[in-house]
Every structure is written in C-alpha cells, then in structure tokens.
Amino acid sequence: MPHLGAGYNLARWLARDVNDAEDIVQDACIRALKYIGSLNRSDARAWFLTIVRHAFYDWCERNRPAEIARDDGSTLEMAIDHAAIDPEQAAMRRAESKVLADAVAELPLAFREVLILREMEDLSYKEIARVADIPIGTVMSRLARARALLQGSPRLRAIGERTSGGEL
C-alpha cells in the first residue's frame, strides 16, 4: 500500500491521537476502494490524502464536534488551540523537548492541515486546494497564517531567536 504511510501521518496530525488516527486510516482505505472510480488522472497520493481528510472530518463530527465548530468560527482570532492536546502526550513531548512539534499540534485545524500537506507531504498549492477543498488563495492565506503562528509562538520564539541569527 504505497500511500498508507502518508495517509497515516496526515490522520495522526489531524486527530493528534495514535488510536484515532488508525481508525481514520482504516475507514479511509475502505472508502478508497469504494471511490476508486473518482481516481481520474489525479495523483494517487493526493487522492488518498483527500479521502483520509474526509474520513477525519466525518470522524471528528461524530467524536469531537466542538473542534470543527471552533475552527470554523474564530480560527483567525485563535492563535493556539490548547483544548485538544492530550496532557500525557504533551508531557511526553515536552520531555523530549519537541517544542516545534507541540506548536504544530496546537495550530488550529484549518491551518494545521495545510501546513502538514505543504511542509510534510510537499504538495503543491493546487494539490492542497484539491485535498482540502478550498480555493488556492485560501491555501496561501492559511499557509501564511500557519507560518506566522509558528514563528510567533512564544514557546518557539526562545529557540527561534537563538537559531535565526546563524541562519540569516
């Protein structure tokens, strides 16, 4: 299964939970076989990621409706989403000093998904637009917002300032 890994990574970052991600990917694989007719000349990876994303949103509607409602409403106002972080995981991540990973996990869903698709899956704007079902302009604005949130994240800033001197 060539794109199972990419699908799992996306589900994992969207759901932020090991078991939930697995449920979502299994659901997505079943859907993939059902919707195989819609695989028209498109890139198979982007096509599968689209299905994973749909599976996640359906799952989210059933299990965490508040998360979608929050992100639909005031995403631009909300810098960091603390609510859905599992304290145990957060503690573990802190212990491993995965500061940036924490900041990514805390991004609001709408920004997190475009950032993951762009920076981890290396999809083009056009592919992200198709996967996330939004216009390219929205891809660009959400990506810019996601980057600004990460660069402005207080917990990141301490490290960012240390390293940016050398990188610029």
Partner: peptide, 24 residues
C-alpha cells in the same frame, strides 16, 4: 528556516506495524 526546522524536528509518524495487515 522554518521549513528546515519542521523537517528536522517535527516527526513524520510512521504507520504502526500492524496497520497494513489490519487494512488488508
């Protein structure tokens, strides 16, 4: 710089070993 850090520090989660079999 942000991209370099994302790729270096943010984990790309590998599918759990049993997942492929369960999907199969």
């Amino acid at each position: 710089a942000l991209r370099a850090r994302l790729r270096a520090e943010v984990p790309y989660f590998a599918a759990p070993p049993g997942l492929q079999d369960r999907v199969r």
